[in-house]
Computed example of a mutant assay.
Amino acid sequence: MESNKLAVNVACLVGRYKVKALHPICLECCDVPSQWLDNILKRDTVLEVYNAAYILKNTLLVTKCLQLLLTCADQVLASPQVCCLAEDAFTFLLGHSLCVKSEAVILNAAIAW
């Protein structure tokens, strides 16, 4: 891929629309984008990074994202970016204990997705 951002976007589209033919290509290109994703991991990018890390099967980066989510789950789940998560990534995220003020936050995120 010509850029890290492009590689991440393609990986996210592959995950979102389940384009199985492109999945191996994304996995081949995952080293540089994974390092780049690790560098941009912040509260405002956590869902984008998490989604790409999950699709690229980078368990270390997924774990880092889940740890960051422990500190800001309410704000992150209320963001419009939740709609961009791949189905499997969203399901996996909801399977974890998230510290939220109310279960309504999780319900609203599911409805928005």
Rank of each mutant, 00 (worst) to 15 (best):
A78P: 03
C30R: 15
D74S: 04
L77F: 08
V62F: 04
S3N: 15
C30Y: 11
Q81Y: 15
I111G: 04
L56E: 14
Q75L: 14
N51Y: 06
A78T: 15
R16V: 02
A53T: 04
D44F: 05
V10M: 15
Q81C: 12
V100W: 01
C26M: 12
L37T: 03
T59L: 03
A104S: 11
S3Q: 14
A21G: 01
M1D: 08
D88E: 13
N39L: 15
N58C: 14
Q75D: 15
V105L: 01
C84R: 13
G15K: 00
K57A: 07
V62G: 00
T59M: 05
A73G: 04
A73N: 12
A89N: 02
S3H: 14
E2H: 03
N58Q: 13
I25E: 14
A78Y: 07
A73K: 01
E87T: 08
K18F: 00
T91H: 03
C72D: 09
L69V: 05
L66G: 04
Y17P: 01
C72H: 05
V32G: 08
A110T: 05
A86V: 07
K18N: 04
R16M: 05
V46G: 03
E87I: 02
L107V: 10
L68S: 02
L13Y: 11
K101Y: 07
A78H: 13
V49T: 11
